[in-house]
Design a protein around this nucleic acid. Structure first.
Lengths: 211, 211
DNA sequence: GTCTATACCGTGATAGAC
DNA sequence: GTCTATCACGGTATAGAC
């Protein structure tokens, strides 16, 4: 085969790119197949219905992502004293693997995270799909944050996480709005700036509300 | 006519509710018409194409919303000393009119703001539609924040606003995810808690990054 | 097992008749 | 204002090639 990629991987990559931009209903099996350079029926053969393709794409990168975020947390916990890592260190561990993923030269991770933005903000998909793949990881981080913020109530921690999640997924979405609003001073694809501001911003927010 | 509402208002209300949940592509003119209890062609007759219906719905409430947010800013500026209002006061003026709208007994505003969440996070619609209706208002608030945070660079102000915007629109989306994540301790529709935490959280974030 | 071609049948947007 | 026809598109099943 001339390409390294198998056809079924091409189908998932195409689906990922299209779902990221157009959401579930804005994509057709025919467009996915066309972008992947394969016949319409092949996606169906490999992955079943359109809904199965969607879920398969959403799940494909989640394990490796959760893995690296868990490792980042363990690393900062290992180097901390008996009080555990600071809020900043925890937030940084939570966010840096995402910055790294978005900065990869390949567009796959960028597309995937834009899809996460779509799912997270969807009244249809948000609750079910985000929870099933990411809640376990988030709970581990909440435990770490509770230790760093001993006066916090659970309610405060979850609402603070909600704020972080919204800001983060808007960053994933890469809409270009900040480019326009700032008249070019900021760019949606400037991840260094996005995360460089997000980490101190979110840390201060958690400490203010939960302090 | 038995109902107070005109048919064309019913069409816009139905479209608003459906677009809020399903996004642009997840909604059909037939479903809008069916929910409004009118014939398919009537929506077309009143508002033109589906795209026009979408834009019409998005614009319908924007002016009154911008108006009340502008008034809230002017009110807190009027009661401030010559240094102008604090960051907290500005953020509060920006957010409280939204809380009030979401708390209205009628679902119209809730649906509208969920639609804003969809648009804000969409790579397709976000840049163009959010900018055309809301950037003028945001710039007025940025000016006020710049005065309250004289050491801030423009880049910092815009990235902080980006964080606020993401958290806010996730709150609009009403996905129910926080209900599940918190095992019922927090609820997506508990606006008092959402804004009560958001205002100090965001104020601290702005001050940390721009201080 | 992998893949293509094609067919089926429902649904959708929209224009034009009334 | 309303009803209906048109015509394109979409999900998916099937037949069979390689």
């Amino acid at each position: 085969m001339p390409d390294k990629q198998s056809k079924s991987e091409k189908i998932l990559d195409a689906a990922e790119a299209l779902f990221a931009v157009h959401g579930y209903d804005g994509v057709t099996m025919r467009k996915i197949a066309s972008m992947a350079g394969v016949d319409v029926a092949l996606a169906n053969y490999h992955f079943g219905r359109k809904l199965d393709v969607f879920q398969r794409v959403f799940e494909r990168r989640s394990e490796s992502l959760n893995q690296s975020r868990l490792e980042a947390l363990h690393a900062c916990q290992a180097s901390a004293d008996e009080n555990g890592p600071s809020v900043e260190q925890i937030i940084e561990a939570f966010l840096r693997p995402l910055e790294t993923a978005q900065e990869a030269s390949n567009d796959g991770w960028k597309n995937y995270l834009a899809l996460v933005a779509f799912v997270n903000n969807s009244p249809i998909w948000g609750k079910k799909m985000m929870s099933s793949l990411f809640d376990d990881l988030v709970q581990v981080y909440i435990v770490a944050l509770r230790k760093a913020l001993p006066n916090a109530t659970d309610e405060q921690l979850y609402w603070c996480y909600h704020n972080l999640s919204g800001a983060l997924t808007l960053t994933f979405a890469q809409t270009g709005r900040i480019d326009k609003l700032s008249k070019g001073k900021c760019r949606s694809d400037d991840f260094t700036a996005a995360y460089g501001n997000m980490i101190p911003f979110m840390s201060a927010g958690f400490k203010q509300v939960c302090g």
